[in-house]
Write a protein that binds this DNA or RNA. Structure first.
Lengths: 138, 138
DNA sequence: AATGTATATCCGTATAAGCGAATATAAACA
DNA sequence: TGTTTATATTCGCTTATACGGATATACATT
C-alpha cells in the first residue's frame, strides 16, 4: 500500500526538483543552499576528486550514518548538483559539473585543501581505495 | 538595564561573527548560506551596482519590511559579506569584495540580470535615485 | 521463494531560519 | 530636554533543516 505523502520530509530535501533548465532566483539560492552545509561540501569535494563514487564509499570515508549520507545525496540530487545511477545494488553519484557554474571552482578547490576535515577525507579516500571494493567492479 | 541574552535570536543571525581571516569549512558554508536566500541575493545584487547603499534605500527598492531588511543586512555583516558604517542617522552598507571570492562573480552577475525580481530591483534603483535623498548628501 | 546487501525513506525530535509587529537605541534637531 | 527619524533588536510564531534509529525497497544470490 502506498504510504501517505509527508510534507515534512518533502521539505527535508528541496521542495521541488529543479529538473527544468531555466535558472531562476530560487534555483540559484537552492544551489547555494546545497553548498551551505559542511557535510555536503565534503561530499562535493570528494566527488571532485573522482569521476563518481558509490554511497558505500562515501559512508565509509565520511564515517557518518548511512541515512545521513543518503539524505544529503538526495538533497544534492534534487538541487541538480549531482547525477545518480544504479549499478546492481549500488548507487553511484557524480558531480553535475554545469551546476557548479555559480561557484568559483578554482577558489574552493584550492581553499578547501587547507581544511583539516577535507584533508582527512582525502586521506581516507586513498586508504579506502587500497582495499578491494565490490562496488568498483564495473 | 541590560536585556538578557537570547539564544534564539543569536541563531537568527550567525552564531559568531567571522571576524578572523582564517577560512575554515564552517566559514565557507557560512558564506554560501548567506547567498542561499532570495532577499539576500537581491541585496547583494543591488550592492554590486553601487559603491554603497543606505538601509532606507534598500527598504524602498526591495519594498520589504524594515526589520526584514535590517535583519538580512545583519546576517550579511556577521558573515563578513558586507561592511557597514554610520553617517549621521544613516547606516551605509557596502559589499566586502573579498568574501565574494568563493562565488563565480561573472556568472552570477550575468545570470541574475535575467531574473524578473532582479530586473525590477534594478529599475526601482534607478527610479529611486531620481528623487533627492537625504541619506545621499555626503 | 527466501535471504542478504545496499540504499532510500519514515518517524520522532531538536535546532535553525524567517517574518511582521512592537520596542529599543542612536543621532539630529527644535 | 523633548521630539523626530533611521536603524537594530526583541518577541511570538511558523516553517525548514538536520540527525539517528527503524523500516521499506530494490536488486542479487542461493
Amino acid at each position: 500500500m502506498k504510504k501517505s505523502f509527508r510534507i515534512k520530509d518533502c521539505s527535508d530535501f528541496v521542495k521541488k526538483g529543479l529538473t527544468d533548465n531555466s535558472m531562476t532566483l530560487d534555483t540559484l539560492t537552492q544551489i547555494y543552499k546545497s553548498l551551505s552545509e559542511p557535510i555536503r561540501l565534503r561530499i562535493i569535494h570528494l566527488l571532485m576528486q573522482r569521476d563518481s563514487l558509490c554511497v558505500c564509499d562515501l559512508v565509509e570515508i565520511l564515517q557518518l550514518n548511512q541515512s545521513t549520507v543518503s539524505r544529503h545525496l538526495s538533497y544534492l540530487k534534487n538541487a541538480g548538483m549531482v547525477q545518480a545511477w544504479r549499478e546492481g545494488t549500488w548507487m553511484h553519484y557524480a558531480l553535475n559539473q554545469a551546476t557548479l557554474d555559480p561557484v568559483n571552482r578554482e577558489f574552493i578547490e584550492s581553499t578547501m585543501q587547507d581544511f583539516a576535515e577535507i584533508q582527512q577525507d582525502q586521506n581516507r579516500l586513498i586508504e579506502h581505495e587500497k582495499a578491494p571494493r565490490k562496488c568498483a567492479l564495473s
